[in-house]
Amino acid sequence: MKTIAKILGGFIALIVILLLIICERDRPVEELIPLYANKDSKFMPIMGMKVHYRDEGVATDTLPLILLHGMSSSLNTWDSVVISLKAHKRVISLDLPGFALTGPSPEMAYNFPYYSKFIDSFATRLKIKRFILAGNSLGGAISWNYALHNPSRLAKMILIDAAGYPKKGESGSLGFKLASTPVINNLLLYATPKALVRKSLETVYYDPASVTDEQVERFHDVAIREGNREAALMIFKGSFKGNPESIKEVKTPTLILWGDKDNLIGVNNVDNFLKDIKGSKAEIYKNVGHVPMEEVPGKVAASILKFVQ
């Protein structure tokens, strides 16, 4: 027993030492704003947060497009798509609560009802009566749940590699696997190595070589923004409780866009959405991973424009 106790004690001591070596402090948002906000950035006080967003394009457009990013991402995921869309549409991108410069929700409520309430409040503050919602990954799941919450306000919807159905053997990313592993995931509150961020991004893209040092730096910085790691941990521990059966109740005209090499949410999900959302349409991009709006932004912008016009 003493030998086992010594081994266990040594293992715990090793973990403590490793944590002391690699642990990172949270970064105040004041440090990050000069790095990741630009001339189009605005900060809206809403629901106890200062929400980072950009409102670009055709100001007179009465049916604007609101873009929602995925897990551990930011509005920057849409940058290249916005460049193509803003000549034709009013385009609004934002950092969702719990992520990037917006940071954690004071309510610490990361679930579909909370995000539906948030979208309603956000649109109301911008005096938008009806809009088109586009979402990638987790943002896609938030979108179709909003379509159930307030269908009269939603004119159309675009789901891009959207979450919603149970996974069926996808390989996933290393970071997401660690963040979903009990006990180990608690360590990510203190240590978020850039090497892990890079490895996770490389599994998100079809071509790992397309991941840049600049992207790794940005994803790492916004991940350790004050409060964001706690928010991510709550989400990975299962704060979102979706009901795939309810997707059949969606009546909003829907376009489904997908990368055929998505390792996180497989392309087989396209058939599920097409079957459950009556009248929906789909486009599949060849040799593209989980984030088509970053990998083939021109094609995604063209698909969206064709659908919304």
Rank of each mutant, 00 (worst) to 15 (best):
N145F: 07
A147C: 13
L148N: 00
S152A: 11
I158R: 03
I158Y: 01
I160L: 04
D161W: 03
D161M: 10
A163L: 15
A163Y: 12
G164Y: 01
P166Q: 11
P166N: 12
P166D: 04
K167E: 04
K168I: 12
G169N: 04
G169Q: 04
E170G: 08
E170Y: 10
S171C: 07
S173G: 00
F176Q: 08
K177W: 14
L178Y: 11
L178T: 09
V183L: 14
V183G: 05
I184L: 15
N185F: 09
N186H: 15
N186A: 13
L188P: 05
L188I: 02
T192L: 07
P193M: 01
L196N: 00
L196Q: 01
L196H: 02
S200W: 00
L201E: 06
L201R: 08
E202R: 12
T203K: 11
Y206I: 05
D207C: 00
V211H: 04
V211S: 04
T212V: 13
T212D: 06
D213Y: 12
D213K: 15
D213C: 14
D213V: 15
D213W: 13
V216E: 01
V216C: 00
R218M: 12
H220E: 00
H220S: 10
D221P: 12
E226L: 08
G227Q: 08
N228F: 01
R229V: 00
E230F: 06
E230C: 00
E230T: 02
M234F: 06
I235V: 12
F240H: 04
E245G: 04
S246Q: 10
E249V: 03
E249P: 03
K251C: 11
I256S: 02
I256R: 02
I256L: 08
W258P: 02
W258H: 01
G259K: 02
D260G: 02
K261S: 13
K261C: 12
K261I: 07
D262F: 00
I265N: 12
N269S: 10
N272K: 14
F273R: 08
L274Q: 14
L274I: 14
K275Y: 15
D276I: 08
K278G: 08
